[in-house]
């Protein structure tokens, strides 16, 4: 299994566009820090949990979309090889799971890089960071997305790549609308970034004091629902009956 993981990681991640897109993502995160977060979200400190949460959420969103893109393009590129790998001893579902786990680990490591970038930036500039709040923001934004990637990865291999691209566009649109407060507001946001700006704005006190950093139950519930969605998709994809596999593979052949 180690060998399979090693080669799958090489096939999926050792592509020229992966480090380039990751670099662009990091550059964008830096830009976000230096252009937006530095001003502080809803008049809170730039190093507050609110500001960091917004930063983390935005970074997670782009990393999430990048990871989905990697998953889709790697699946699209292996259709012809699948006729060979599908008849080996390893189940295609297990292979899909391995692939989605690889992409998930890549996603989490990238989010960690963004997290560290933010901490270093704020520490350098203000000599103040609030690790507890930052970790909470990190976990709440990144973990549900990680589970979604695992879930999506188990079904992605059986879907036309176009579904994946449509999903990416939909997630982006939903996040934009969430930021605008349209629809369900921050509850809909795939990466949970808009919670921090929206709620801190609502809680903003005009008594010129710091807005306390709070994680509302609704937000935790929304993030949990996303995680559950990921688990549900994973369960559907991984435990699907043989009959379904036969039908899908017939469609592919």
């Amino acid at each position: 299994m180690k060998k399979i993981i090693k080669y799958e990681a090489k096939i999926i991640l050792c592509k020229p566009y992966v480090p380039i897109l990751l670099l662009i993502n990091l550059l964008y995160s830096y830009y976000l820090l230096s252009a937006d977060i530095i001003l502080g979200v809803s008049d809170t400190a730039p190093f507050s949990g609110w500001s960091f949460g917004k930063y983390m959420g935005s970074g997670v969103l782009w990393t999430f979309l990048l990871s989905l893109l990697i998953l889709i393009t790697s699946n699209a590129g292996r259709k012809n090889v699948a006729v060979l790998t599908n008849v080996t001893g390893i189940s295609p579902k297990k292979l899909n799971l391995v692939r989605s786990l690889i992409v998930t680990v890549f996603f989490l490591l990238s989010c960690l890089l963004i997290f560290l970038l933010g901490c270093v930036f704020l520490q350098t500039l203000f000599q103040t960071i609030r690790i507890g709040a930052y970790l909470a923001a990190f976990l709440l934004t990144a973990l549900p997305c990680a589970i979604l990637i695992i879930g999506f990865g188990t079904v992605a291999g059986n879907l036309h790549p176009a579904f994946g691209y449509v999903l990416i566009v939909l997630l982006l649109a939903v996040s934009l609308f969430a930021a605008a407060g349209i629809g369900g507001g921050y509850l809909l946001d795939a990466a949970g970034a808009s919670y921090y700006e929206t709620v801190s704005g609502l809680l903003e006190s005009f008594e010129a004091s710091e807005t306390p950093f709070v994680i509302r139950g609704g937000y935790v519930l929304a993030r949990s629902l996303y995680a559950c969605l990921g688990i549900a998709v994973f369960w559907f994809g991984y435990t699907g009956s043989g009959k379904k596999d036969r039908f899908l593979s017939r469609m592919l052949s």
Partner: peptide, 30 residues
């Protein structure tokens, strides 16, 4: 599948892997 060696009419390979790496990978799968 544990005892099958299959070569379809149309198939693809991983261009980015070397011959050895591909064989190693397929062996691991098998």
């Amino acid at each position: 599948k544990r005892n099958l060696g299959y070569l379809p009419q149309v198939f693809g390979l991983y261009d980015e892997l070397t011959v050895w790496q591909f064989m190693d990978y397929m062996s691991a799968l098998k």
